[in-house]
Nucleic acid binder design. Structure first.
Lengths: 143, 143
DNA sequence: ATTAGTGCAAAGTATTTGCAATCTA
DNA sequence: TAGATTGCAAATACTTTGCACTAAT
């Protein structure tokens, strides 16, 4: 694990203890934390870390292209470190859990020229919405 | 125009002057306004209308299924009255303009069972990102 | 008349900014 | 050392809430 940290070092990212914990917290698959969650986890290891610094670090990681910003609903943005592996998201409309998925087919190719309005289309982002097993179970029991 | 208002009346939506202007402002195609923009436009016709009321009305229209909430980036949500006609969005990464598009193919069918993690998948939301003709032109000239 | 809708003021959540102190390379 | 990074405090953007007043059916 943590080739994220490796890569960052290689790219000359000035390394500080707070940046290190942020990168460590973000490392892995199926990680989709909000800025606040990143801060909370980072603070377990480095209690003094401030929210500002977490926001700074996240912003830079996004700018570097190492992390993707995902805004599923209108709530807090989530940060996905899986930027190097193209994927889409499956979101639970109950609890907001996010999973990385790999659909077949190419959504980009499905947009006809006459539907492009002169845009230079670069990317197709697909978000699948559904109910996760946990929420489905809870719904069946509750009420 | 304004079958939105017709439909709402038919569904027993208690009609007030402020709700009327909100519905009128939202009526049409390729409309993707933020709550604040809706408020601004509504205020042209009804200066006393409050933001609270606009938020209330928008929330209800969404609950009624007459309007869709779209959050492209992490910014303010946008409201799309085109709920009855299934469509996807094409967003300009330069200026944020949104156009409704109708891709061929079915993104939902492109998600294999083994990629569903036990979720009951209900919907596939596709957002195309690109640069609109205006922004492309501006980029070519500037700098 | 009843019940639902309105809007002010205030609080809440998410994120950004200015700037002095601090630390990495 | 020089320039980048940190983090506090305060500001900003967006949205929600409590509650007294008003209006639609």
């Amino acid at each position: 694990m943590s080739d994220l940290l490796e890569r960052l070092r290689g790219r000359g990212w000035r390394l500080t203890s707070q940046r290190r914990v942020v990168a460590e917290v973000l490392d892995g698959d199926h990680v989709h934390l909000t800025a606040d969650e990143v801060h909370a986890r980072a603070a377990r290891r480095l209690p003094e870390i401030s929210r500002t610094t977490v926001y700074n670090a996240l912003g830079e990681l996004v700018a570097l292209g190492e992390v993707i910003e995902v805004s599923t609903d209108g709530r807090a943005k989530r940060y996905d470190p899986n930027a190097r592996h193209p994927h889409q998201h499956l979101v639970c409309s109950g609890c907001g859990t996010v999973r990385d998925v790999h659909p077949t087919g190419d959504a980009l190719a499905d947009l006809p020229v006459e539907e492009r309005f002169g845009f230079t289309v670069a990317q197709a982002e697909v978000t699948y919405w559904g109910v996760c097993p946990e929420c489905a179970g809870a719904a069946g029991k509750g009420e």
